[in-house]
């Protein structure tokens, strides 16, 4: 292979790397690559954003929670409730599989588990303080369904909230459109629907709305809206138990 040919091959490869996630021009992406792109598109790097959670009852009654969400690396998450007043100041911390809840009146952070819910409704703690999917799941199968990638994911450990996920991924945008969450018994726990792909801040284009329903909560829906995203890197010490009561000072 002469110099010119090598240069052309290199250029084609480079183009493939840039264009592949968008157009799939050359080699199709493997499952783990798709999952990594999904993570990168949903929660790109260190960031802060706001999340509005709306629980909707069958008769239409709504209750809203607003929380401030901080993420660092792939496995550190802090959330701070800023509304309503009854929840204000509550904060949660997640470091890998470890989760804590700080309630100002109680004064000490208590350990919580991923299947509990700090807001009630269909979302549990694992949904609200979600880590990158590739941190918690391995891709066990990749297929195509309804013109989308269909990833079958299996939890890496027993400490993960859902044992298996079926994730439909939009081929162009490489963001999920739907995720079915299953327990180890094979029971469908909930379905997450992702909609409203838009710039939610700092040029990050991703689904702004995640809606969930569950066969366990027939007729009930919960919606999570993500907005006001800013890329922000904070010291590791912010993501510690001792700092949790003071995390509100960083807003």
């Amino acid at each position: 292979m002469n110099y010119k040919t090598s240069l052309m091959v290199a250029a084609v490869c480079l183009l493939s790397i840039i264009a592949a996630p968008i157009g799939g021009l050359c080699e199709p992406l493997a499952g783990p690559q798709i999952l990594e792109q999904v993570d990168n598109n949903l929660q790109p790097g260190d960031l802060e954003m706001y999340r509005k959670i709306i629980n909707i009852e069958p008769e239409g009654k709504k209750k809203e929670f607003v929380l401030w969400f901080l993420k660092k690396d792939r496995d550190k998450v802090v959330t701070l409730f800023v509304s309503p007043a009854s929840e204000e100041g509550r904060a949660t911390l997640r470091l890998g599989d470890n989760m804590w809840l700080y309630i100002p009146n109680v004064g000490k952070p208590i350990r919580i588990t991923s299947m509990q819910s700090v807001v009630g409704g269909v979302f549990n703690n694992a949904d609200i303080m979600r880590l990158d999917y590739s941190v918690e799941y391995d891709v066990v199968d990749l297929s195509e369904d309804q013109g989308q990638h269909l990833l079958e994911l299996k939890a890496k450990t027993g400490a993960v909230a859902y044992d298996r996920l079926k994730m439909w991924v939009l081929k162009k945008e490489l963001v999920p459109s739907r995720i079915d969450c299953y327990a180890a018994t094979g029971m469908l726990i909930k379905t997450l629907h992702f909609t409203e792909v838009k710039d939610i801040g700092d040029g990050v284009v991703r689904p702004a709305v995640m809606e969930t329903d569950s066969p366990l909560y027939k007729g009930y829906r919960s919606i999570m809206i993500s907005a006001n995203l800013k890329k922000r890197s904070l010291p590791d010490e912010v993501f510690t138990l001792n700092y949790l009561p003071r995390v509100k000072d960083l807003r």
């Binding site: 945008e173 909609t195 409203e196 792909v197 702004a208 919606i223 809206i225």
Partner: peptide, 13 residues
């Protein structure tokens, strides 16, 4: 893809 107007994205908090 987006269907504008269905959700309120404003977060005054």
């Amino acid at each position: 893809t987006a269907a504008a107007g269905e959700y309120d994205f404003s977060i005054p908090q």
